[in-house]
Amino acid sequence: MDSVFIIEKSAIIVAVFALTMLMAMYSTWAERKVAAFLQDRVGPNRAGWGGLLQPLADGAKLFTKEEFFPNTPNKFLFILGPFIAMSTALITSAVIPWGDKIHVFGKDVLLQATDIDVSVLYVFGVLSIGVYGIMIGAWASNNKYSLMSAVRASSQMISYEVAMGLAMISILMMSGSLSLKEITVMQANDGWNIFYQPLAFIIFLICSFAETNRTPFDLAECESELIGGYHTEYSSMKMGFYLFAEYANMFISSAILSVVFLGGYHFPGMDWVNANWGINIGAILGFLALFAKICFFIFFYMWVRWTIPRFRYDQLMHLGWKILIPLAVINIIITGIVMVLFK
């Protein structure tokens, strides 16, 4: 393995890591601003211009808070919980194609940490272990409200993973590949998936809300029933990690939604730009296009959060098992029939 390859990949990984952290930080700011806008308020405006330094102030506050341990026999698992939540939120970004090739130092560099053969499955794998952070942390807090919240979170996660996977299958049937890079290339050639698979898109979107534990599916953090939810016993930066992981998850799931359904880094006229202005500018514009799509989805998450009230638990399970899963199966059947008839 040559050192140039290692340096190139390390640079991309560090850049993606920094981007995810930055976006997670500023999502907290954006969430407050959007909430304020939707409720006809001003929102944070003390720290920096327009409250732009608010995330730093929050971070400093969380770091300097008292570190509190509940009376638990499982200190190790208690610390492990936020650790797992944060790491699983960050490692998904490895397979997301952030852009096309760029040409620097006489070398083609792919703007992606790794293009593995099974990246879609990798995303689902990370998703299925993401809930361990919540589950282990909440169980180790030795608090019945935390435990209730974790049981809710994990059963919700297990239920919605099924519908999400089934919605994904119809996309995979069309693309014939499990690589997110190839799914993007296919969309650049044939048109975005959202136009071919609107039903799958809606199912996937709803399931993303459930998987990231966002309102209207944030039953795990139902304050009126469960105090604070799974992080009731956490304080200081350990709680900060849980909150941060939620926003990092939101960013990553927005990125996956954009890559799978909105064409990733593809934008109308990409071929023309590549041919006339060079591939570097094309790749940078592509990255900006992907970034704009991601920001749109993040805004959409917040918009929904401050618009739709929380579901009840039985409504949530009903929606997942009795509506979304049958719809996803029907969507697969229709996709199969259409593919056989028109190919």
Binding site: V118, L121, S128, I129
Partner: peptide, 25 residues
């Protein structure tokens, strides 16, 4: 065997989550 590894994690990690839930409940 990337496919096998990832599917192993999805299937078994998910299954153990169910196992944990059953253990608790």
């Amino acid at each position: 065997a990337q496919f096998l590894a990832v599917v192993h994690i999805i299937v078994y990690a998910g299954a153990i989550m169910v196992l944990l839930l059953f253990t608790l409940m």
